[in-house]
Design a protein around this nucleic acid. Structure first.
Length: 289
DNA sequence: CCCCAGTCCTGCGGGC
DNA sequence: TGCCCGCAGGACTGGG
């Protein structure tokens, strides 16, 4: 599931397309339901044809292709979308082709097995509206402990749930939320308003450390094998998962706890009950007669 | 403000 | 062996 590290890997992997011209945008002959493209293909092709790709960015979990027309192509892979320069995993899930001119690669393709993703062409104003600060928080890898704390410290939501809120902080999904909280030693059910300043610091440090390590390893390719880099190669960070999908395994960090799975906001949460204790309340709870 | 359930979608694995 | 069901979840929406 592409989260920040996977999308960042995609971005780096397709960097060679900068400077190329878009020759044509076309749908691949995919028999499955077409993915969402906005505007519709005709207009999309018309508005992009002949433009030059001037840069590549990332906005949280979205890939941003900047054009010299000042418009931007925003690719949102959701669960299974991939931006590829070559050899897609198969032909039947190939959804969109962006044919290129004047560079070393002939086309950029969008492949998506479940088809939940989207490809959109946005004018500057639309981009600002849809991906601006009102909709997307600061990028998880380029923010500060103070900023995160400021945004969340009065919230009564569980910290794990809040980390998935892209308006609070952008780029974290279910997998990395679990990994980050484990490294930070914070129980996923702790409410935001219960975290102390030093815990926000620990959370921020863990966030940067986990996401940067995951980028170094080119993301996580899970058992379903869906996530791949621009050249259709697997990531390697899954070998370093401490808690995600590790239910029943011994925690590698403490060697004592067994990883458990709970459900929060209809999503699986994995954690180590030894490394991530709920805040002790013994001290202040006068109980008994 | 926040929470919850439902929605989109396909592939896979468990259970019978 | 084959079929059905439920699960995976990112982002969004509508109701409470």
């Amino acid at each position: 599931m592409p989260e920040l590290p996977e999308v960042e890997t995609m971005r780096r992997g397709i960097a060679v397309i900068v400077g190329s011209k878009i020759a044509r945008v076309s749908r691949a002959p995919c028999k499955l339901r077409p993915i969402e493209i906005r505007p519709q293909l005709r207009a999309f092709d018309h508005r992009t044809r002949g433009t030059t790709i001037t840069g590549l960015g990332r906005a949280g979990k979205r890939l941003v292709i900047e054009l010299d027309s000042s418009e931007k192509i925003v690719i949102e892979p959701r669960m299974t979308g991939l931006a590829l320069l070559s050899s897609p995993p198969d032909e039947e899930h190939l959804r969109l082709k962006i044919e290129l001119d004047g560079g070393s690669v002939r086309e950029l393709v969008y492949w998506d097995s479940r088809g939940l993703g989207s490809v959109r062409l946005l004018r500057p104003k639309e981009f600002q509206l849809q991906l601006g600060p009102a909709k997307l928080g600061p990028d998880a890898i380029a923010t500060t402990a103070e900023l995160i704390r400021e945004r969340l410290r009065t919230s009564r939501r569980a910290i794990k749930v809040a980390l998935l809120d892209q308006r609070a902080v952008a780029g974290i999904g279910n997998l990395y939320a679990a990994e980050i909280l484990h490294v930070a030693g914070i129980h996923p059910e702790r409410t935001c308003d219960s975290l102390r300043p030093n815990e926000w610091d620990a959370l921020h440090r863990a966030m940067v450390a986990v996401l940067e390590a995951a980028i170094q390893y080119e993301g996580s390719t899970l058992a379903d094998g869906t996530y791949r880099n621009a050249l259709n190669q697997s990531g390697n960070y899954q070998q370093h998962h401490r808690v995600y999908d590790q239910e029943g395994n011994l925690c590698g960090a403490c060697g004592k706890g067994t990883i458990v799975r709970i459900v929060q906001a209809q999503r699986s949460t994995f954690f180590c009950p030894v490394c991530q204790k709920p805040r002790s309340r013994r001290r202040n709870s006068p109980r008994g007669r």
